[in-house]
Design a protein around this nucleic acid. Structure first.
Lengths: 193, 193
DNA sequence: TGTCTAATTAGATAATAATCTAATTAGATG
DNA sequence: CATCTAATTAGATTATTATCTAATTAGACA
């Protein structure tokens, strides 16, 4: 489930200032100072909001000299807007065959508590892989994560982020380049067993 | 602008627990205890979330004996989901003529601070009406509001909720029936001057 | 009326987040 | 290099909110 990403999208839009920023950007790209001026806010506040908007992926930026112009990724924005009602009312049928799906579900039910946290990492390799896949599902393909952020993410499931982070790398779910982490392409995971 | 309602909708969906509640409700109505059980949360927490979901209007409830069953108002939910991208990319042209629009804008700019709060209520009747229209725009047509809720809403703009609430009634923007408030139909406002 | 169950309210706590000021970084350009 | 401007970071403040326990309300029903 990409539940985390969905929650984040809506949380990001659940703020009047950011909605106002989006209405400004809807008419065309603008740079930070312009936005700050139009909204009567200070530059750091705009940085704060633009970081959130950028993190959801619905706003991108382009640099020209010293000035950064922000613009909406309209396609992504629309697709996120529809995502939740699609998820609720036309849940995608997984391509995995049913037995695998039930098996996966059983393992997840066993090791993931009702509140979504991880009880403990399975020791059987096969089950461990299932759980790792489950955990990593909330991360965004193509996004670069500093180590600190990965740790924070994992801690939502279990305090021992170091072990789990290591498992992600060992099992090739992610790769690391000078302390920046990134997901390996989803197609790769299929081959992980 | 129904900006408040939009922000509220997204803020409401920007919480993992509420998204999980919606995924549960998507398969059919459930009562509070059932939701609490499935999510591993206590009853008051569910009350808290259901209040928010109900306030946005995307969840309704039906009472059977002592038990309250909640269900999604799918139509409203879908329409809210699309509302923001519609607002950004196909802004409805107001029917008001431009001079009225500019005049309204000027009054609003004068009396509403940058953060959206009301500096003070204009004493000139004409301007006061404009401001009252502005304030009332965040309320939902057809929804019934207990007095407490109206007070909370008004306090977002100005601490003196009693005066403003009275103005809403005096000027026929709302009517009150044993302490339950409801908007008068929008068509009526047009005639208020 | 007394008791049971579901729901709500009140109030506390802890976490999150919006905004600001002051300080810093990063490019551009004279 | 010196300086200018735009953007970011750090850190503080304040407001909001998710959750809990304990107490209360509201209906049902024996």
């Amino acid at each position: 489930m990409q539940l985390n990403r969905l929650v984040n999208f809506h949380k990001t839009l659940g703020d009047p200032t950011r909605i106002r920023i989006l209405t400004l950007l809807a008419t065309g790209p603008l740079h930070g100072q312009a936005i700050a001026g139009k909204l009567g806010l200070k530059a750091p506040t705009i940085t704060h909001h633009m970081t959130k908007l950028r993190d959801t992926g619905i706003v991108n930026q382009r640099r020209d000299k010293n000035t950064i112009y922000y613009h909406i990724d309209e396609k992504k924005f629309r697709s996120y807007s529809e995502a939740l009602s699609k998820m609720l009312y036309q849940p995608e049928h997984d391509k995995e065959d049913d037995s695998l799906k039930t098996q996966t579900q059983a393992v997840v039910n066993n090791f993931i508590a009702a509140d979504g946290t991880l009880k403990h990492l399975p020791s059987q390799r096969k089950k461990k892989i299932i759980i790792l896949k489950h955990l990593i599902n909330g991360l965004e393909p193509g996004k670069k994560y500093p180590e600190k952020e990965i740790n924070e993410y994992i801690k939502r499931f279990h305090p021992d982020f170091a072990t789990i982070r290591r498992e992600f790398i060992i099992n090739h779910f992610m790769y690391r380049e000078n302390n920046i982490y990134e997901l390996n392409p989803k197609e790769m995971w299929a081959t992980i067993e």
